[in-house]
Design a binder for these strands. Structure first.
Lengths: 187, 187
DNA sequence: TAATTTGTCGACTGATTAGTCGGTTTAATA
DNA sequence: TATTAAACCGACTAATCAGTCGACAAATTA
């Protein structure tokens, strides 16, 4: 049987996405997770701590997937294509996690410290962008701006494929999306 | 003195963004808006109706700004540049409204009917994209995908400028952002 | 083995909340 | 003016919630 802490996080994720944070009583989380409320508060001092932990654990999982199959010797384009495809792949396999970020990365329930910690984990991807700028393969735009534009673009792509899942079977639309992505950032 | 209904909407917006939906009691909205709770429920049957109305009114306001200063005779590129700049301008002038969409457009508090109604209002912008595809000025990618990619890109740009407001004084970064945007979608 | 720590339970509580209701005031209409 | 309707008020309530507590069980350490 699954670890109770993990079970609580998994159940919270689903309920927070489907019902919202304050509309999800801790009693319901405990019930659906098959634990007592006391156990929930044993692992997480407060409900806020629970959602902040959830945020960081999902971010960790996501980053691990995003940088998967990237080889040091790959070209910048190949690396960024892999990140792009990994992002869509992750969102497809972890729909609740992706929706969680869509809903909560701008919400007041996640505190600034947690958001900053989450951001730190992107350093590997930021390095790829910096490398690309040095070699003039990418546009000479501030790394932070390039990053936000790219992330926004990917989020839009994911939103489209979430609402049009059948379009993922054939790879052409996804390839088109990457072409547009690349044309936008390449120098 | 401002209309009470309007005052309630304005106050709700601020509080929902700063505190979240369920963490904002109707009693607090009423208090801050300077009305009685009875008045709030006179205008909005439930709290859900309130937030859904808010969503649609903000969307209406946004669309009106986005298509501002667009002339029928403009080129596709000029039209889309205007929409791009209008979007950033709107977000800058209406930060709460923009954050509201970031937080709530994926949230369970806004029902599907409301979201669909909001989407309908984009028809004018969708037409520009379709025109651009017909004349092969834009990439031959499905309109819905182009739209979501574009919207995501713009949201990312806005997020960057929200966190780096000083970068808006000089227009160069904003122009760079549009160049990247245009390179991405142009055929 | 004994002692201590960690995990688990669920009934309980003080505080909070969405929405109601009966009434008053203001505005519109006949 | 008289009548009706719409706007507005705020005290009130039944329901709900985050977090506590004391007790017991399991695992870890001495």
């Amino acid at each position: 049987m699954k670890d109770k802490r993990e079970q609580i996080l998994e159940t919270s994720l689903k309920l927070f996405v489907e019902r919202g944070f304050h509309n999800t009583p801790t009693s319901l989380i405990a019930k659906e997770a098959g634990v007592a409320t006391g156990t929930l508060f044993h692992y997480f001092k407060t409900k806020e701590e629970l959602i902040n932990s959830l945020y960081l654990e999902i971010k960790d999982d996501m980053i691990a997937v995003l940088v998967n199959k990237i080889d040091t010797h790959d070209t910048i384009k190949a690396k960024l294509k892999q990140v792009f495809m990994n992002s869509v792949f992750w969102a497809f396999n972890k729909p609740f996690q992706q929706l969680f970020f869509m809903q909560y990365s701008h919400s007041p329930y996640i505190d600034q410290i947690t958001k900053d910690q989450g951001m730190q984990r992107f350093s590997g991807i930021l390095e790829i962008i910096e490398d690309g700028k040095k070699t003039e393969i990418l546009k000479n735009i501030s790394t932070a701006l390039l990053f936000e534009m790219a992330q926004g673009f990917i989020n839009g792509t994911i939103k489209y494929f979430r609402e049009n899942q059948q379009k993922l079977k054939d790879q052409t639309e996804l390839e088109n999306a990457f072409s547009a992505f690349w044309d936008g950032i390449k120098g």
